[in-house]
Design a protein around this nucleic acid. Structure first.
Length: 432
RNA sequence: GGGGAGAUACUCAAGUGGUUAACGAGGACAGACUGUAAAUCUGUUGGCCCUGCCUUCGUAGGUUCGAAUCCUGCUCUCCCCA
């Protein structure tokens, strides 16, 4: 066992100032001080991508590794087949095995972006609990695991208690044992002494520490991080379009960047601490800068930058910025025309598009028809009319009135037409 | 089983025979302001071949010149008594 070098940061202290510490089991800090400690966080393969709601848990591992400890990311191939009742009001549907396999592979890839797998002793490691559960027979499980935990202990967990009224299947009831055994297994095979997770996981985690203590004479510890809240009460990690995913195919780097850039002032500092690896000094400096000139959104920009680069790439980040500038900056018809066709398509890659033929345009199309029937930017002609009367509609960055007819002369690069409803809703018409 | 109340647009909620596409509130969207913000102010919020027309007030019929509004059947919800 390696002794932790002096220069390493104290993980608990680190979590504390970052506002990421909800609960710790007694003795955890001592253990972390004593030696390089292996710790794990589990991820359910319920979808083929993680989303920003999982990010805090990922960051636990990342911060852990930065503090010189060894992170294990557990992909829940087995637990995903059972279903965690925590925070769920109703029984979950099963995913089929092919889907689960696919999801596991995708999630594993995403986790790899955050952790260092090549840092010597504390290199990150990814494990899948399906590997040790697939050949574990029911009888063996009942004898080895079930025997150690009493029903009353299991029923005392909130995740179970909250479901006693509405109903919980034996399968979901057993979930904590499966997860608990994960901890035991990782403890025995990989010397993992600490499990971390969101505060909703406390119940499951303690079943694990309990199991380790009863089945062995070893020690096991736990840390949870608070669930991320928003000041307006809405759920973190959602936008109009739904979840913000880490997968670029589900949430484009541009949308991802925008999500972070649009974080409210109240939350930016908090998120900065959780989702970036910037030091306290760096963050304090940014907060000060932000306070001086809130309009510059120094915090949001730095936050969006670091997270976008980590999850996607520096190149994606630069593209997102370029697109943002054109879409939200003081763009005019001139700036639009100065774009190369390639840049134009890249900037508007996230914008809904529709195609029209040259013939359709040749005779001129009324703006009302274009907005409603031909592009769907407005739900009906009435709505199109109202939007125009409300001064919300622009064609190629120029406000349009109701009598506007669009024809071939309006095209940019003889091929494109940029429609805009309000400040943020764009639609690109491609004429081909 | 007996008795009562109700069902109105995204939600809540007025309206109880004739300018009622339906008061008001919230939400949502847009405009001004701004930081691609918050707060605030303003406008819009059934559809269309749009100075007019059509379709909507649980559902199906009926009365009437005319109904969301009156009558009847049906469906559903809630409450009270057994």
């Amino acid at each position: 066992m390696y002794l932790l070098k002096i220069k390493h940061m104290n993980f608990i202290e680190e979590l504390k100032w970052r506002g990421m510490l909800q609960d710790t089991m007694p003795g955890t800090e001592e253990q972390l001080q004593k030696e390089m400690t292996s710790a794990y966080v589990g991820f359910d393969p319920t979808a083929d991508s993680l989303h920003v709601g999982n990010l805090a848990a990922i960051m636990l591992l990342k911060h852990l590794q930065r503090c010189g400890h060894k992170p294990f990311a557990l992909v829940g191939g087995a637990t995903g087949m059972v279903g965690d009742p925590s925070g769920k009001s109703a029984e979950r549907k099963f995913l089929d095995e092919t889907t689960l396999k696919h999801n596991q592979a995708c999630i594993q890839k995403q986790l790899e972006k955050f952790l260092d797998f090549n840092s010597g002793a504390n290199s990150a490691q990814i494990v899948n609990n399906y590997d040790w559960f697939k050949d574990f027979s029911l009888l063996d499980f009942l004898r080895d695991v079930g025997k150690n935990i009493t029903i009353s202990y299991m029923m005392a967990k909130d995740s179970v208690k909250n479901r006693m009224e509405s109903g919980i299947s034996f399968t979901e009831f057993s979930y904590q044992l499966i997860q608990g055994y994960d901890f035991f297994y990782l403890n025995e095979k990989h010397n993992v002494k600490l499990q971390m997770g969101g505060s909703d996981q406390w119940g499951n985690i303690t079943t694990g520490t309990e199991l380790v203590r009863r089945k062995s004479d070893r020690e096991a510890f736990a840390i949870t991080t608070p669930l991320i809240t928003k000041s307006d009460g809405t759920k973190f990690g959602k936008s109009e379009g739904g979840n913000i995913w880490l997968d670029a195919k589900k949430t484009s780097p541009y949308q991802f960047y925008q999500f972070w850039l649009n974080v409210a002032d109240d939350e930016a500092l908090r998120y900065m601490k959780i989702f970036t690896t910037k030091s306290k000094e760096e963050i304090d400096a940014l907060a000060e800068e932000h306070a001086k000139e809130p309009g510059m959104r120094a915090l949001q920009k730095a936050l969006a930058k670091e997270v976008t680069i980590t999850v996607h790439s520096e190149e994606d980040y630069n593209k997102a910025i370029a697109a943002s500038e054109i879409l939200f900056g003081k763009g005019t018809l001139e700036t639009l025309q100065s774009l190369s066709e390639e840049d134009l398509l890249s900037v508007f890659s996230d914008v809904p598009k529709s195609t029209l033929s040259k013939d359709q345009l040749a005779t001129g199309i009324s703006i009302i028809d274009l907005l409603s029937d031909l592009t769907g930017l407005c739900a009906s002609k009435g709505e199109a009319r109202r939007s125009i009367q409300g001064n919300a509609i622009s064609v190629n960055k120029t406000k349009a009135d109701e009598s506007k007819k669009v024809d071939l002369n309006d095209l940019i690069s003889t091929k494109y037409l940029l429609l805009q409803n309000g400040k943020k809703k764009y639609h690109l018409v491609v004429v081909g």
